[in-house]
Design a protein around this nucleic acid. Structure first.
Length: 885
RNA sequence: GGGUGGUUAGCUCAGCUGGUUAGAGCACCAGUCUUACAAACUGGGGGUCACUGGUUCAAAUCCAGUACCACCCACCA
């Protein structure tokens, strides 16, 4: 048996093993494998920098699942990759250029893109390095990028298909426009934040009737120059006399009509709404209904243009100030009220978004959303936790067409081509194809300058990364993917889009299960994000505490609530745990010398002592528990806790302590303890491996492991087949023993644990204790009441009962102890059935039978059980008397 | 205006389908160099499970309502 160094050096161990695993292709999927397939595609991190702790959590969870499934006999493909993150990345690079006083326009499209690619290479490499440090068992041979050749091909193919199907269309609409980024945004890229604003009441004089005016309330007086009408509700009595009136537009002098439309709310403001079709989405629609002109008064940078008359050249906010001042001077400003409203801001740069009329590309969403909803209803995709289904379906239900074009450079160029005068257009895969379709020479063909929303390519991720549009073996085998692990904040951005694209293009949902993980917040509950600057760098953490500790800390706080807050203590707890694993393993290995060669097997039942049986039982329980917790509901934090508690509090605190006496003795005497230790350690390491891959591998290698070269290839543990009576009575027996000893010895203040250990392991001590116990026990039996056993039909005195029951268990011969353990377990089970019985009868007969008491038959049955229990105790008590003094 | 989540120990939170005396980590108090581990060990203190009502033999858990705190969604200017 080899020995472990006294100090665990995570850095050395992690580097060494990751390299080996990768070299040996353990991460590699095999589409030709006879094993069942399990596939996760990584949520591609943005190439905007490096990974934050949220990524570390997300990827720890994916790695947990990947390793768990591998050990369960699956051929696992966990596919790595990055997202080009169009606007976000472009902004990062632009900011860098700005430091040198250069804009993207100075460089020109080609040169700028070259810069972004350089940045992408750097950031992408950093991210992949971080994932490796984390221990992520990603199949690096299949790494993808949302702008690699395959994705480019997939994007074009999807676009062309959908364009030709009429699902993608172009049109002049009022869209969300970020003047800083200089591009259109989709609805969900706009964040609405409440802010203090003002509501201005402006007088619009009625033409031909000096002295009369209509007062309009607006929050955006700078758009007055673009007004083409004032609208009131047709039912509004205040304005019935003004039907067909014309108003003079303040500051501009233009005459505009007063129109009536039921869209206008009578009780807001003055009930009169100014209509600015080029700068408000609702006004745009009303304008269309009335055939009104659209007057654009700003340029794409948010600066007023010639149409704004004397305000031309002013920034929109400066224009607002000047307009208000001018209105006031002209006596047209009736009043100004403070007003709170939700101003839309760019989700990437926080600039106030402008509603702006422009020619954009849109995708029809209704038909796709319906398919996605239907698939969800049918349960083709499961959500974990399930309550996210509602958020997801609500969004799909209220979906509107998606603005997919962006006026930025970094991204997939829209595959639309025009002839010279733009009188003809087509969607095509290439210039040559476009030339053919348009019937013009290639030199005349021009491609649309816009790029696609970054979520367009992200939406294709699950099938495009598997090779689509080519029919690859990977696509055939791994689509639909098994599981998507992601956080809830991109449910509509990404998850819904993937579902819709998957159903539209592949005819199948892209994943069978969506596992939603929490967002990581700092200890003040603040969301951690790159832009906020409160991120914890996972690499720094890995450097100081090791990847396993970080992973364990993260997994054990993942409770599937929305936010989980992370503090320094959590990491310390993780580090302490890996430290404990190391030290315990070190101790065990020191004591395992002389263990037979070959794979470790479960020790033979007949040679086991109580402590051995107990730890093996707890081990079996833990195997079952952890498996269930991972399988059912992905309760990974509970699985981590189960493992933590078993390892630390059962194995280390109790079993190892109890085994020390035997291990100290002659070799033969400790053989069973040694075999049990080895088996327990080996099994536990396998259970821990998906959580803490490195340290488990390092220790596991020190144990005999037969033909299996790595714990990665070992199988997931199965609970032992043999059922042990102690197994059913579980850990509570031992805790009862502790209390019993304390209770009986009372004022003696014994060290309970040592005492129990002594009783279990040293017969002399036990005999001694028996004598002490005898008297107390017999006295106690006299007072013993039926308690703690069940329900309200019986009295339930507090106090010593369970301790006494425990005392009975300890100080009696082993057979008696087991009998009682079995009996107790049986009674506990009876309790469960008792309840079910009540429920069943309850259902049949209705409430009146059970006003306050349980039914007689049940009470009778319960009494009988108790009597049996009592007599068993009496009998054992009698045996006790006969023991030698 | 709609919706979702939360409220459990000093702090951060677990607590699955109701069931013995409600748990963990950290913090706190008193001890401890005991065959690995002081990043440890032993023992201990600390909770009217937000509130009110209901269902039940039994409620932190299920139901209804209230309060407070978050968050998300929405085209009242």
């Amino acid at each position: 048996m080899q020995e472990l160094s006294p100090k665990y050096d995570p850095k050395e161990v992690e580097e060494r093993w990751y390299k080996l695993w990768e070299e040996r292709n353990y991460f590699k999927a095999d589409p030709a494998s006879p094993k069942p397939a399990f596939c996760i595609v990584i949520p591609p991190p943005n190439v905007t920098g490096s990974l934050h702790i949220g990524h570390a959590l997300n990827n720890s969870l994916q790695d947990l699942m990947a390793r768990y499934k591998r050990m369960n006999g699956f051929d696992v493909l966990w596919l790595p990759g990055c997202d080009h993150a169009a606007i976000a990345t472009q902004n990062v690079v632009e900011r860098q250029l700005a430091k040198q006083g250069v804009t993207r326009h100075d460089l020109g499209r080609e040169k700028f893109l070259q810069k972004v690619w350089e940045w992408k290479e750097e950031s992408g490499a950093t991210i992949m390095r971080q994932l490796r440090r984390l221990g992520a068992s990603l199949d690096w041979s299949r790494e993808r990028f949302t702008m690699d050749e395959g994705l480019v091909e997939a994007v074009r193919e999807v676009f062309v298909r959908m364009y030709e199907k009429g699902l993608i269309y172009q049109g002049d609409y009022v869209v969300n426009w970020c003047p800083r980024c200089g591009t259109a945004l989709s609805d969900i890229e706009v964040l609405h934040k409440e802010s203090e604003g003002k509501l201005y009441y402006v007088r619009y004089p009625v033409a031909g009737f000096p002295g009369t005016h209509v007062v309009v309330a607006t929050t955006r007086p700078e758009t007055i120059m673009g007004d083409v009408a004032v609208c009131v509700n047709p039912k509004d009595p205040r304005y019935t006399g003004l039907k067909d009136a014309r108003l003079t537009l303040p500051l501009m002098g233009r005459e505009i009509p007063l129109i009536a439309d039921s869209y206008v709310e009578m009780d807001f403001g003055t009930g009169a709404l100014k209509i600015t079709p080029a700068h408000d989405a609702n006004d745009f629609e009303i304008g269309n209904r009335f055939g009104l002109p659209r007057i654009k008064i700003m340029d794409p940078k948010g600066v007023m243009n010639e149409a704004a008359g004397r305000y031309a050249g002013l920034d929109r906010f400066a224009a607002r100030k000047k307009v208000v001042a001018d209105l006031e001077a002209a006596g047209l400003l009736e009043k100004v009220e403070p007003y709170q409203n939700a101003v839309g801001r760019c989700y990437r740069c926080d600039t106030v978004v402008e509603s702006y009329l422009s020619l954009q590309w849109f995708m029809k969403m209704k038909p796709m959303a319906e398919k996605a909803l239907a698939a969800m209803e049918k349960g083709e995709t499961r959500f974990q936790p399930e309550n996210w289904k509602k958020v997801y379906s609500d969004w799909l239900l209220g979906i509107r067409d998606w603005c997919i074009s962006r006026q930025i450079w970094w991204g997939h160029r829209i595959p639309i081509y025009y002839n010279a005068d733009r009188s003809k257009q087509c969607a095509a895969h290439s210039v040559s194809e476009a030339a053919l379709k348009l019937g013009v020479p290639e030199t005349e063909v021009q491609q649309d300058p816009d790029t696609l929303d970054t979520w367009f390519s992200a939406g294709l991720w699950p099938f495009a990364t598997l090779g689509w549009p080519k029919e690859t073996p990977e696509l055939k085998r791994y689509y639909p993917t098994s599981m998507l692990v992601t956080s809830w904040d991109i449910l509509s951005f990404w998850v819904a889009r993937m579902s819709m694209f998957g159903l539209e293009i592949m005819g199948k949902v892209p994943f069978e299960e969506v596992f939603i993980n929490s967002l990581v917040a700092d200890e003040h509950g603040q969301k951690m994000s790159k832009t906020k600057g409160n991120v914890i760098d996972p690499l720094t953490k890995i450097d100081t505490i090791g990847a396993d500790a970080l992973r364990f800390a993260l997994i054990s706080i993942e409770t599937q609530s929305r936010y989980i807050s992370l503090s320094e203590e959590r990491f310390e707890a993780g580090r302490n745990f890996t430290n404990k694993i190391w030290n315990a393993a070190r101790f065990m290995l020191m004591n395992l010398k002389g263990l037979p060669e070959g794979p470790i097997t479960r020790p033979r039942q007949e040679s086991l002592e109580l402590a051995d049986r107990w730890i093996l039982t707890r081990l079996d329980d833990t195997v079952r528990e952890v498996t269930r917790q991972i399988e059912e509901g992905r309760q990974v934090n509970q699985a981590a806790n189960s493992l933590h508690d078993f390892f630390w509090h059962d194995l280390c605190d109790w079993y190892i302590e109890a085994a020390k006496a035997r291990l100290a003795g002659p070799v033969e005497e400790g053989a069973t303890a040694r075999a049990t230790l080895a088996y327990t350690l080996e099994t536990t390491l396998r259970l821990l491996h998906p959580f803490c891959p490195f340290i488990t591998e390092e220790i596991w290698q020190m144990l005999p492991h037969g033909e299996v070269p790595s714990i990665m290839l070992a199988s997931w543990p199965q609970p032992g087949a043999a059922s042990d009576p102690v197994a059913e009575a579980d850990f509570k027996i031992l805790s009862d023993i502790v209390y019993a000893v304390r209770n009986i010895r009372g004022e003696m203040k014994v060290d309970a644990k040592k005492q129990v250990t002594a009783i279990l392991l040293a017969p002399d001590q036990a005999t001694l204790s028996l004598l002490v116990a005898q008297k107390a026990l017999l006295e106690s039996l006299g007072q013993m009441t039926i308690s703690g056993l069940s329900a309200g039909a019986f009295e339930k005195p507090k106090g010593a009962a369970s301790a006494v029951a425990g005392a009975v268990q300890v100080f009696l011969p082993l057979e008696g102890l087991l009998d009682l353990a079995v009996e107790r377990t049986r009674l506990e089970k009876e309790m469960g059935r008792f309840q079910q019985l009540i429920e069943a009868i309850h259902k049949k007969l209705g409430n009146e039978q059970f006003v306050s008491k349980a039914p007689a038959s049940v009470v009778e049955a319960e009494r009988k059980k108790i009597a049996e229990y009592q007599s068993a105790i009496d009998k054992l008590g009698a045996n006790l008397k006969e023991l030698p003094a």
